[in-house]
Every structure is written in structure tokens, then in C-alpha cells.
């Protein structure tokens, strides 16, 4: 177990550097003058440009720039946005909101997806199975922004149940509909995954053994079948939190949620390299850590992995 964790951790390091370097390189090579918008309609004064070039070490070779930048980040110096705010400030308000949204989405996804998957996996080919199959296919096929606008239109505009855009510091209940939107596609995927996992394990020898032990149907399903079938599902859900951190851009835009997605999007569109890099680095880090934790969780849940 310890060696397994260590190996996964070591594998993470080159990936972390690779991904952040890729981002760094892409962002700093955004077309146009990196500081064009900063000084308003006028061109920036040479002294300012020089100062910024110095600040971001732009005269060094790219790889040196990158490592100097990373070193700053390690010391929690995330720099400032072009409008002068501390990036760490911006992150500390935006990040919790996106995390909240991601959590709500994963919960919705898990509860609905697993329930549908278990029910259909146990009784395949029935009416319920076909109904769930068709509706999951529809959900998978509807792009997030279509679902978003539809739900916003129906709940917010037409029925007036929710406010079409959420408040600046949204509560969990405000995030239910946005969470549902964010979760919609993956929820369908979870239910398909659970269904096939349940259906496959339902014919496993150890389930037959459990029946032969004279256990009740409820016990066979809830202990023997579910434990094995849900291991891959739970770990998938864990990884989803990471995915949602960077994948909530569209949903946040539709419901006007002041999360990380909006900040990054605006920064990319405004070509604010100095803001994009630290935030994306943090998102990637969260994403990779979520995946690592999930891998370790897998090893805890499935004793076979520990002895590889």
C-alpha cells in the first residue's frame, strides 16, 4: 500500500510539470502584445513594458522563465491581475464557490446516477430499464449549454421557481439547478456505468455463493453485489470533483456564478497571461490530486490492488 502510494505520487510529478509547462508556454504565446490592454487605449510606455518583462522574466529562455515562475508559486506568490488585484485574493473568493458547485454536482450525479444504474442493472430489459436508457441517451446528447439554457428558461424565466442568475456568494440551495446542469451528462454516464457493473457482477460466482449461503436477496445485493460494483463508480465520482473544477466554465457563465471558470475565461479572453497561468496551475493541481486520492481510495476499497 505504501509503495503503491509512493509510486503514484512519483508518477504525478512529471505530469504536473508537463501540464503546467504546456499551459505556461501556450498562455505566454497568446497572440498580440501581452500587455496591450493594460494601459487603456494608448500604447503602454516603454518603462512599464520593461518593468513587466522584468517581473515575468520574459528575457530569460522559456524554460528558465517557467521555473522562476513556478518557484514564485511555490512561495504562494501568485502575482497580480492586470487590474492590480492579488491573484490569490481572486482565487480565494472564486475557488470556494466553484468547489461548492462541484460538490453539489457530484452529489446529484452520484445519487441519481447510482440509483438509476442499480435499479436498471438488477432488472435489465424491463420497462424501467428502457426508459432510463432512452433518457440517459438524451442527457448524454444534450450539450451542457443547451441543458443549461433549457433549465434556466423553464425554472427561472417561465415558472419563476429560481432566480435565473445566482447571487454573489451562492448558497447550496441556489446551486441545485446549476449543479444539475453541470452533472447532467456525467449523471447519465454514471448510471450506464453502474448498470453494466451491476449486471456483470450479478452473474459473478461470488454472488451465486452468497445466494447459496441462504442470505436474503437484500443482503446479497446491498453487501456482496453493491460493494464490488460500486468501487469503480465511487472512484469515478471522486475524479469528477477535479473535472468539474475546470469544467464548470459553461455552467458558471449561464447562471452568472462568480467561480473560477468565469475568472479564467475572462482572463484568457483578455489575454491576461499573468492571471491565467496561476489559476490554471491551481486547477490542474486540484485535478491531479483528486485523481491521486481516487487511486489510493481504490486501493483501500479493493484489497486486491494493494498486493500488486
Amino acid at each position: 500500500m505504501g509503495r503503491y502510494a509512493l509510486r503514484r505520487l512519483l508518477q504525478l510529478i512529471p505530469v504536473l510539470f508537463g501540464t503546467t509547462f504546456l499551459i505556461y508556454w501556450l498562455v505566454w504565446s497568446l497572440p498580440g502584445n501581452a500587455f496591450a490592454g493594460k494601459c487603456g487605449p494608448r500604447l503602454c510606455e516603454q518603462s512599464y513594458i520593461d518593468e513587466m518583462r522584468d517581473r515575468y522574466n520574459l528575457d530569460d529562455p522559456l524554460i528558465v522563465q517557467y521555473f522562476k515562475y513556478m518557484w514564485d508559486m511555490v512561495r504562494f506568490d501568485f502575482g497580480t491581475t492586470y487590474s492590480g488585484e492579488q491573484v490569490s485574493e481572486v482565487l480565494s473568493t472564486a475557488l470556494p464557490i466553484t468547489m461548492k458547485l462541484a460538490l453539489v454536482a457530484v452529489l446529484i450525479e452520484g445519487v441519481i446516477g447510482i440509483t438509476a444504474g442499480v435499479l436498471t442493472g438488477l432488472k435489465r430489459g424491463g420497462f424501467l430499464d428502457n426508459m432510463v436508457l432512452v433518457s440517459t441517451l438524451f442527457l448524454i446528447s444534450l450539450p451542457v449549454f443547451v441543458v443549461g439554457f433549457l433549465l434556466q428558461y423553464l425554472f427561472g424565466v417561465k415558472w419563476g421557481i429560481i432566480d435565473p442568475s445566482v447571487s454573489e456568494d451562492p448558497s447550496f440551495s441556489e446551486l441545485i439547478i446549476p449543479g444539475l446542469v453541470l452533472a447532467s451528462g456525467q449523471m447519465a454516464y454514471i448510471s450506464r456505468l453502474t448498470r453494466s457493473s451491476i449486471a456483470e457482477n450479478n452473474r459473478a460466482d461470488y454472488v451465486r455463493t452468497a445466494v447459496a449461503k441462504g442470505l436474503t436477496r437484500g443482503r446479497v445485493v446491498s453487501v456482496h453485489l453493491l460493494r464490488n460494483s460500486l468501487i469503480p463508480i465511487i472512484t469515478f465520482l471522486g475524479a469528477e470533483i477535479g473535472t468539474f473544477m475546470g469544467g464548470a466554465i459553461v455552467t458558471e457563465g449561464i447562471f452568472n456564478i462568480q467561480g473560477v471558470g468565469g475568472v479564467v475565461f475572462d482572463a484568457v479572453r483578455g489575454q491576461e497571461a499573468g492571471t491565467v497561468v496561476p489559476i490554471v496551475t491551481v486547477i490542474v493541481l486540484i485535478y491531479l490530486l483528486a485523481n491521486l486520492i481516487v487511486d489510493l481510495l481504490y486501493a483501500v476499497l479493493d484489497p486486491r490492488i494493494r498486493y500488486e
Binding site: 508518477q11 501540464t19 504546456l22 498580440g32 490554471v280
Partner: peptide
């Protein structure tokens, strides 16, 4: 696998926005 992980480490929409903004001038 590690090269794959590097690209996999980028959340899709985020990565696409950065990539596209780099290679297509948004203005």
C-alpha cells in the same frame, strides 16, 4: 502514458479555450 497524462491533466474545456485562444486571435 506520461505524455498522455500531461494532456489528460488539462480539463477539456479549459484546455480548449487556452489552445484556441493561442492559435486563433479572438479579436
Amino acid at each position: 502514458s506520461r505524455i498522455g497524462d500531461v494532456f489528460f491533466g488539462l480539463p477539456f474545456v479549459l484546455g480548449a479555450i487556452v489552445l484556441l485562444s493561442t492559435f486563433i486571435d479572438p479579436t
